[in-house]
């Protein structure tokens, strides 16, 4: 039960919408006379709420798909029930009711556009311009095989959303430790996440994994000289230096 309450608390987060919904649910259960509306907006959601707080149901859901129990709450028609109950409560005072309800929704909620994960789009891909420019720079030319490249953490999510022609020895799985991948200690990533990055240790690994390119954030501290380790600076794009690992050729398509 503690786990269920924790899921519910996490779902509620910083807002009061679930509480508003429960109030709306009680109001509709008490006052709604239209049978179809009563069944769909009050009685079915009530059953879902009861089921959600029923521990054996949580065990069943965990068996089917662990970690997604909060999705049961998606079945609750919160917005519809709050809006409908509020409008019914307002009765004939619809303008006043609208203003009051809108105010309640604004004050008890959290604006999505203040979310830290939202930023002004730099292009229609909705990917950072730097990623697109870097990918265009190292993209294989006509008749060449796909290339392998190592990127800093902040670019890893985006690279392959732009091009399938650029492959990476490791990807997002390295950035989510709780996934517990048994190969989450990729030798290259182990060197890349150190500060300073030891180029003498990194360069042989790049060659071993057939990586033609290395992309580094210019602010990253380096140990050793790129040139002495066979890494030639080919381009600088925004905050990133792009190095070509001369030890690995770019293969031609057969």
């Amino acid at each position: 039960m503690q786990q269920i309450l924790a899921v519910f608390r996490e779902y509620c987060g910083s807002g009061w919408y679930p509480v508003l919904f429960l109030i709306a649910l009680v109001y509709l259960l008490v006052t709604e006379k239209d049978r179809k509306v009563r069944i769909v907006l009050a009685e079915v959601p009530l059953c879902i709420v009861l089921l959600f707080f029923f521990p054996p149901f949580k065990m069943l859901m965990d068996f089917l798909d662990e970690g997604t129990y909060y999705r049961v709450l998606w079945l609750l028609p919160m917005t519809v029930a709050i809006g409908y109950a509020g409008i019914r409560l307002a009765g004939r005072h619809i303008r006043l009711g609208f203003a009051a309800l809108a105010l309640v929704l604004v004050l008890t909620g959290q604006c999505v556009y203040t979310n830290v994960n939202l930023s002004r789009a730099q292009n229609r891909f909705h990917l950072p311009n730097a990623v697109i420019a870097i990918c265009n720079e190292i993209m294989p030319k006509e008749g060449e095989e796909r290339v392998w490249a190592v990127f800093p953490d902040e670019l890893i999510h985006y690279v392959r959303q732009y091009s399938s022609e650029i492959q990476m020895p490791y990807g997002r799985e390295m950035l989510v430790p709780e996934w517990g991948w048994n190969w989450d200690t990729h030798p290259i990533y182990r060197v890349m996440k150190e500060s300073p990055i030891d180029l003498a240790a990194l360069a042989p690994l790049l060659t071993e994994y057939n990586c033609q390119y290395l992309v580094l954030n210019r602010s990253a501290a380096l140990k050793g000289s790129p040139e002495e380790n066979g890494l030639r600076l080919v381009s600088q794009i925004e905050a990133y230096d792009i190095y070509r690992n001369e030890a690995v050729e770019i293969f031609k398509k057969k």
Binding site: E10, Y11, C12, G13, S14, G15, W16, Y17, Y70, L73, W74, M78, T79, V80, I82, G83, Y84, G86, I87, I94, G97, F98, L101, A102, L105, V106, T108, G109, Q110, C111, V112, Y113, T114, N115, N117, L118
Partner: peptide
């Protein structure tokens, strides 16, 4: 239309956590 406008406002301000329908809807 009042219901629709309220539904729209609830979506914009429904980002109370990363799990809600509204957060998924607009993000």
């Amino acid at each position: 239309p009042v219901f629709l406008a309220l539904a729209g406002i609830a979506q914009i301000f429904g980002n109370i956590s990363i799990y809600t329908n509204a957060t998924f809807f607009l993000m």
